[in-house]
Structures are given as structure tokens and as C-alpha cells.
Simulated scan of single mutants.
Amino acid sequence: MKRIVFLLLSLLISGSIVTPVSADSTWERIKLSNGDVVKFSYEELSNGFRYEVRFENGRDYWYEETGNTGRAGGSGSLTSEETDMAEEALEIYKQNHAVHSTMDEQEPSGSPIGILMVLFGVIATFSSRTAWYLEIGWKLRGAEPSDLALGANRVGGVIVALLGLFAL
């Protein structure tokens, strides 16, 4: 019984990962620089796009871009020349329809967590006494930080600031 449930879940998950081009998508003919004509289908996704190129010999090539990642595929016997032709077809389509790649328009995310990490890291690096006080000094009356504590705060501040930059 467990195997059947696992098999059904696997099929359900794999079916939701594959996003085929819908059957009712419109195909447009595009003439390439070498004179060949290919069928071209373009589909907007939630945060990207997918296109498919179908050649006269029945082979096809597809490319999908979501967010800041792209993936491509096609017929097993697709040649590198056909791949280049498919990319040319996309460029022609983009020019004719004013389509822009989502990768071309990436804006910095400005993650609040990344900003806070950079801020705390800079404070700990350049004002290690303040960082020590915020960490533990406020609990103690009349105590002073050791040189080791100040050095650890500086090193930790650099690490946190760098991690914050990666989180941005």
C-alpha cells in the first residue's frame, strides 16, 4: 500500500513540475537570416517566459526562463546549428514584439534581512564596544569588555556583514 501511495505521489509531483506548452498556444512563422522558416510559440509565465521552436524536419527546441534561471531542451537529435537557429528566432520574436528577458531586468532585491545583517556587521566591525554592550554589557554593571571579546566581535562583524551582502 505504501508503494502505491508513493508511486501516485511521485506521478503527481512529476506532473506538476513539467510545464508543457498548451495545445491551444498560437504558432507564428518566423523567417530566419538563412531563409529557413520555423514555427515559433511564445508563452508568458508568472515570472518569466517559455518559447518553443519547431523546425520543418519535426525537431523542436524549447527554452524557459523563470526568475533568474533559464533551462533549455529539445529533440534528442537536435544539432547545434538548429539550436543557434532557435535562438535567432527568439531574438527576431523579441524585436518584433518588444519582449524583454526577465534576466535583463533584474533589480537588486534589497532583502530586509540582508540589510540588517550588513548593518549589524558594520557596527560590530567598527564599533566593537557598542556590539559588546548590545550583546551582554547591558546586563552587567560596571563591567568592561576584554580584548578577546572585542576582537571576536570584530571578526564576527566582518562575517555577518559578508553574509548580509550575499543575502541581498
Rank of each mutant, 00 (worst) to 15 (best):
L32V: 06
W132Q: 04
Y42V: 07
V18F: 15
V155G: 10
L78V: 02
G137L: 04
H97M: 09
R154V: 12
V18E: 12
D104L: 09
Y93R: 00
I115M: 15
E44N: 13
F120P: 00
D84F: 14
S33E: 14
R54H: 07
A152L: 11
Q95I: 03
R71M: 14
A72Y: 11
E28N: 13
V18Q: 09
A149Q: 10
R59M: 08
F40D: 05
M103I: 13
F40E: 06
I159L: 05
R29P: 01
V99T: 07
G35D: 08
T69N: 14
S14H: 08
G35P: 09
A124L: 03
L140W: 10
T26I: 15
G157D: 03
V38S: 00
E64K: 13
A167P: 03
V122Y: 00
P145M: 10
A167F: 08
E65G: 04
G74D: 01
G164P: 01
G151C: 08
T130Q: 11
W62A: 02
P145Q: 11
L168C: 04
E52Y: 03
E135Q: 09
E91F: 05
I159S: 00
D84K: 15
I115G: 06
E82M: 09
L9F: 12
E52M: 12
E87W: 04
G67T: 01
S25W: 07
I159K: 05
A72R: 13
K2L: 06
G142P: 00
S22R: 12
H100V: 14
D84V: 08
I13D: 03
N68V: 05
G157I: 05
D60N: 13
S80Y: 10
I30G: 03
F49G: 01
G156L: 08
G67D: 00
N34P: 05
S10R: 08
R129N: 15
F126Q: 09
I30R: 05
S33W: 06
G73A: 07
S25I: 13
G151N: 15
E88F: 00
N34I: 05
D147W: 11
I92S: 01
Q95Y: 06
N153Q: 10
L7D: 04
E65I: 06
N57A: 04
F49K: 00
N34V: 07
I4C: 00
L90T: 01
Y42N: 08
S16R: 12
E87N: 12
P20N: 14
I115V: 14
S75T: 07
L12Q: 07
D147P: 02
R54A: 07
Y51A: 02
G70K: 00
E65M: 05
A23L: 15
F126S: 08
K31G: 01
E88L: 06
D60Q: 12
D60G: 09
L78P: 02
E91I: 07
A131V: 04
G157K: 02
S25P: 02
D36C: 04
E82G: 02
S16H: 06
S127M: 12
F49R: 04
N153C: 07
A167G: 05
T19Y: 12
V158G: 02
N96K: 15
W132M: 01
L148Q: 12
T125M: 15
